[in-house]
Write a protein that binds this DNA or RNA. Sequence first.
DNA 1: GAGAAATATTTCAAGCTTGAAGGTTTAAGC
DNA 2: GCTTAAACCTTCAAGCTTGAAATATTTCTC
Lengths: 158, 158
Amino acid sequence: MNKIKESPAPSPASKESLRLWLRILKVQRMVEAELRERLRVEFDTTLPRFDVMSALYRYRDGMKMSELSRALKVSNGNVTGIVDRLAEDGLALRVPVPGDRRAAMVRLTKRGIETFEAQAAAHEVWVHEALGGLEGEESAMVARMLDHALTEGDDDAE
Amino acid sequence: MNKIKESPAPSPASKESLRLWLRILKVQRMVEAELRERLRVEFDTTLPRFDVMSALYRYRDGMKMSELSRALKVSNGNVTGIVDRLAEDGLALRVPVPGDRRAAMVRLTKRGIETFEAQAAAHEVWVHEALGGLEGEESAMVARMLDHALTEGDDDAE
DNA sequence: GAGAAATATTTCAAGCTTGAAGGTTTAAGC
DNA sequence: GCTTAAACCTTCAAGCTTGAAATATTTCTC
């Protein structure tokens, strides 16, 4: 394994963005790998399932499939499968929407809520363990700057 | 869709880490979706293929499969499939390692190198377009702080 | 109100991803 | 040297993910 010198440098500014991007990717992958592993070992679940449940937990009275996929920024067909499996396990269920026979609301079951609450508490601790190297002030600043880095398309603010 | 108020707050510090994590995730997903789409439309390829080729481009004289999976932080079996497909397309190839009949070196073909160079140039521009909202100094600072946020396990520095 | 366009969801094929299990080859310990 | 452990890679099943195509329903337009 012999590292080769970089090729010609196209633009200083874009090189800097690229460096930042690679750093973001590195942090994201490390943290995500940790979370995935822990969710698997301690709760026998997966990150996508956790993400879906997290969204459903926030919107306690249910979300439409399309809202769910938009909130998670994943494809439509994707959530179908995940919700299917959550439903099989009795953690979520589809309820028909009164005025619209195309749509379906998805919501956590009672068991789904309880299950998620346990997972979420652990999840928060894990994230802090993985990412706690910054003081509160720094952490907030990085978050702010990251938001600012997105040049556009920053929809659905929290 | 009716947003429900947050549940009890476990710890201020971990809440702050969680906020940062969600922000990182948001940025990562937006940029990645953009890159994936562009790679698909303009080069008929995928992000994982690009990642593998990127690693092989840096280590021009080849990497072992295990080095590749370690560098990309993905599982062993994963790269097997991706390299298979790259090889089918004539972009990469496996060469036996003289002293070790278990291992195989993977390297880009001439065509693989040319293909990647075109993709990489476009990729860098795309990243800058997506993430160029920060001045060079800020960008570098965020990168530095992100690195610092990882409390441990920060191996293979660049 | 009939037809066209828009919306909501599912299905599907292809590819990505993981963790575990299996096969081969090499290195270590005795 | 022989056995055991380690390293390298592939295969496999299950699940995730996408984009496109198919269905069904609703809304718009004339």
